[in-house]
């Protein structure tokens, strides 16, 4: 397509997207909105991608650019960027739509009224941009790109903030407090999770590593979420967009498949079938332990509390 035609098409598309976004209601110009879209295109599609400037986007098909922009949450993008720019009406809309939701989200995350209020207020301040740099407010809403819903983005940002806080808070917890909480400290040089004095251990590890490496990322994610993080089937299903029963089946399949692969790997390393089975079965016999607590003890510090524990604990935000 000739560059001039393409440029015209791009301008037409930009105008249509601008109209769809309702950005004009917040006093945003079409040029400013197009510049925002270009910034997002450069970030996700290609460094040279541009909605209007055909000269800079010749490497990216126009359909791809148009399709990408059309898939953005344009109205929410306009609202967020108008808020970041300090538009009064945008803030009124934002507050009426999201203020109450922010508090609900915070309560869902922290499970504690006081912490929830603190977390929501803190995020609200970040969104408003209280930290001025060179005299200009830096609103967190500037980083919203419309790829997901604004509400979902707020929830994610809040979750990240909560995790950061938790991590910082845990760094300052004293030894006495940890001991009071029942945290045990593993002796240096010992790995309570390993089978002691096992001649077959290196081979077992090698075979296991190989079997794990052969899995897809999604399978490893599923295993880690279930066996390391202690996530419920519902939570994993929620993360992957699957049904719980599919996750259940997948985990069963993975467990069975891994066992077979490890046994095959051990045999490839020179073990007889009986030896390989014995090596794996020996390891299985002491499986009846709380893996989560062992994982916490192994690291010497607690990571995040088990979400199932938090939710069971009601008012306690941390364990």
């Amino acid at each position: 397509m000739p560059k001039s035609n393409r440029s015209n098409d791009g301008a037409g598309t930009a105008a249509a997207l601008f109209e769809r976004s309702g950005a004009a209601a917040y006093g945003m110009t079409a040029e400013r909105f197009a510049a925002i879209l270009d910034e997002i295109l450069r970030k996700y599609v290609s460094p040279g991608a541009s909605l209007i400037s055909a000269a800079h986007s010749s490497s990216v098909p126009a359909e791809q650019i148009t399709g990408f922009c059309a898939g953005l949450r344009l109205e929410e993008l306009a609202l967020a960027r108008a808020c970041a720019a300090g538009n009064e009406r945008a803030w009124q809309d934002f507050i009426s739509r999201y203020r109450q939701k922010l508090h609900s989200m915070a309560l869902h995350i922290t499970r504690d009224g006081a912490h929830a209020a603190d977390l929501a207020d803190s995020l609200f301040a970040d969104l408003y941009g209280v930290n001025a740099r060179d005299g200009v407010r830096q609103s967190k809403l500037m980083s919203y790109t419309g790829r997901g819903s604004l509400e979902g983005w707020l929830r994610t940002v809040m979750a990240q903030e909560f995790i950061n806080r938790y991590r910082k808070q845990k760094r300052t917890v004293s030894l006495e407090e940890q001991t009071d909480e029942g945290v045990q400290f593993a002796a240096a040089g010992t790995d309570p999770g390993s089978t002691p004095d096992s001649a077959s251990q290196p081979q077992l590890e090698a075979a296991t590593d190989r079997a794990l490496a052969e899995l897809s990322a999604e399978d490893r994610f599923t295993l880690a979420a279930y066996y390391l993080d202690g996530r419920t089937l519902a939570e994993i299903a929620g993360m992957l967009g699957l049904h719980e029963s599919s996750v259940s089946r997948r985990l069963d399949r993975l467990a069975t498949g891994l066992r077979k692969r490890i046994l095959a790997g051990l045999r490839a390393l020179g073990m007889s079938h009986a030896q390989a089975t014995e090596a794996l079965e020996t390891d299985v016999r002491d499986m009846q332990l709380n893996l989560r607590s062992r994982l916490m003890q192994d690291s010497g510090t607690k990571t995040f509390p088990d979400s199932r524990q938090i939710r069971d604990a009601g008012d306690r935000s941390t364990d």
Binding site: E205, T208, D209, A211, L212, Y227, L228, I262
Partner: peptide, 17 residues
């Protein structure tokens, strides 16, 4: 849910940089 040998959990964790 099917249990997995402990070694799998250990190696999963060990592989986490």
């Amino acid at each position: 849910m099917t249990e997995v040998p402990k070694i799998i959990v250990n190696r999963l964790r060990a592989g986490l940089p």
